[in-house]
C-alpha cells in the first residue's frame, strides 16, 4: 500500500524481518543490560536459577504455542497446574503407608500428574471441538473449576507433601546431570520435540492450517476437530510435566499455586511471534518469550533501579511492543 519500498536491501544476504529479529534483539539487549548492572547476573548460579524457574512456564508455553497456532486459547493452565499438584500430593501421601518412601511412589505421583493433565486437556478439547463452545468461555470456566477444586482439596489452606517423601523427591528439582538441573533438561527436551513437531511434522502444518482457515483445512483433508483436540490434550500433558517438576520445589500446593501462569504462558507465546489469532506459530520464539519475561523479573530483583513491584508493568509494555512489531512486519509483506 505504500509506494516507498524501493531501495530496501535486497541483494545478497537479506536481513530477517523485524518479526523474527525483534524478540532475539530484545533478549540480547536484556542480557547485556543485566550483565552491565550486576556482575553476578552472568554467574552460573543465577543463570541456572533463571532457567530452572523459566522451565515451568516454558514447558506449558510450548503446549500453548500449539493451542494458539491452531486458533484456540487455554486460560485454565494455571489452575490446572495447581489442581494437579494438589491431587498428586494427596495421592502420594495416601499411598505412603502402603508403598513407603521410594521410587515407586514417585512414579505413581508422576503417573497421576500426567493422566490428570491428559484428562483435563481432553475435557477442554472435547467441550471446545465436539460441543463447539468458544475456547475462551470453556477455559474460563474450567479455570474457575480447578482453582476452586484445589482450594477445596486443601480446605482453604495448604496441601503439603509428607516430609520424608519431600526429601526423597527434592532431587527432581534440584539435581541434574553435569550441573544442569532436571527442569532445564526436561524443558530443553520439550522444546526440541515441540520445534520438530511444529516445523517438521504433519501435526504442526495441520495446526497452522486449522488456525489460519478452518474451512480450507477441512477441504484439505485435515481433521480439524481432532487436530484441535490434540493440541489441548498435549497442553494438558505438558501442564502435568511442569507440575511434576514443580512439586518437589516447594513440596506443597495451595489456592495461590500457579496463579497467573496462564497469562505468562500466553504472553510468552505472543512475544515469541506466534499470532494470537492463530495460523502461525514458532516454538523457538516462545522460548525466547519465556526467557525475556523471566529475565525482566530477574534483573529487577538483582538491581534496585526499578521496584520489582513494577515487574508486571514492564512485562505489559513488552507484550504490547511485541504485538506492534508483529503487525509492522506483517504489513510490509
Amino acid at each position: 500500500m505504500t509506494s516507498t519500498t524501493e531501495g530496501a536491501p535486497t541483494r545478497g544476504w537479506k536481513l530477517p524481518p523485524m518479526g523474527v529479529l525483534g524478540p532475539i534483539l530484545a533478549l540480547i539487549a536484556l542480557i547485556v543490560l543485566g550483565a552491565a548492572m550486576n556482575p553476578s547476573f552472568l554467574a552460573y548460579a543465577n543463570i541456572t536459577n533463571v532457567l530452572a524457574r523459566s522451565a515451568f512456564i516454558g514447558i506449558i508455553a510450548v503446549g500453548m504455542t500449539f493451542v494458539i497456532t491452531a486458533g484456540g486459547l487455554d486460560l485454565s493452565v494455571g489452575s490446572m497446574a495447581a489442581f494437579i499438584a494438589g491431587l498428586m500430593i494427596l495421592v502420594m501421601n495416601a499411598a505412603l503407608p502402603t508403598l513407603g518412601v521410594g521410587v515407586p511412589i514417585i512414579l505413581l505421583g508422576m503417573a497421576v500428574a500426567l493422566v490428570a493433565g491428559l484428562l483435563a486437556g481432553l475435557l477442554n478439547g472435547f467441550l471446545i471441538t465436539t460441543l463447539g463452545i468458544e475456547a475462551f468461555i470453556v477455559t474460563l470456566g474450567t479455570m474457575g473449576i480447578y482453582r476452586s477444586l484445589v482450594t477445596w482439596l486443601a480446605d482453604g489452606g495448604t496441601l503439603s507433601l509428607d516430609f520424608g517423601l519431600r526429601t526423597f523427591y527434592r532431587p527432581v528439582y534440584f539435581d541434574g546431570i553435569l550441573g544442569v538441573s532436571w527442569p532445564i533438561i526436561v524443558f530443553a527436551l520439550v522444546v526440541i520435540a515441540g520445534e520438530v513437531l511444529m516445523g517438521r511434522m504433519r501435526f504442526g502444518r495441520h495446526c497452522a492450517a486449522t488456525g489460519s482457515n478452518e474451512q480450507v483445512a477441512h477441504y484439505s483433508n485435515v481433521d480439524v476437530n481432532r487436530t484441535r483436540l490434540a493440541t489441548y490434550a498435549m497442553l494438558g500433558v505438558l501442564v502435568g510435566v511442569a507440575t511434576i517438576m514443580y512439586v518437589p520445589r516447594l513440596g506443597s500446593a495451595s489456592a495461590s499455586t500457579g496463579v497467573l501462569w496462564e497469562l505468562e504462558a500466553i504472553a510468552a507465546v505472543i512475544i515469541g511471534g506466534t499470532v494470537l489469532k492463530g495460523g502461525f506459530g514458532r516454538v523457538w520464539g516462545t522460548v525466547i518469550g519465556v526467557l525475556i519475561l523471566s529475565l525482566i523479573d530477574n534483573i529487577l530483583n538483582l538491581t534496585d533501579l526499578v521496584s520489582p513491584y513494577l515487574n508486571g508493568a514492564i512485562q505489559g509494555v513488552i507484550i504490547i511492543l511485541a504485538v506492534i512489531l508483529q503487525r509492522e512486519s506483517r504489513a510490509k509483506d
Partner: peptide, 21 residues
Amino acid sequence: KLKGLLLGKGMRENLTLASLA
C-alpha cells in the same frame, strides 16, 4: 478463497497440505 487455499501462506505449504503424508 474460502475453501481452497490458505491465502496467508506460501505456495509450498498450500501445494502439499492435503497430501502431507
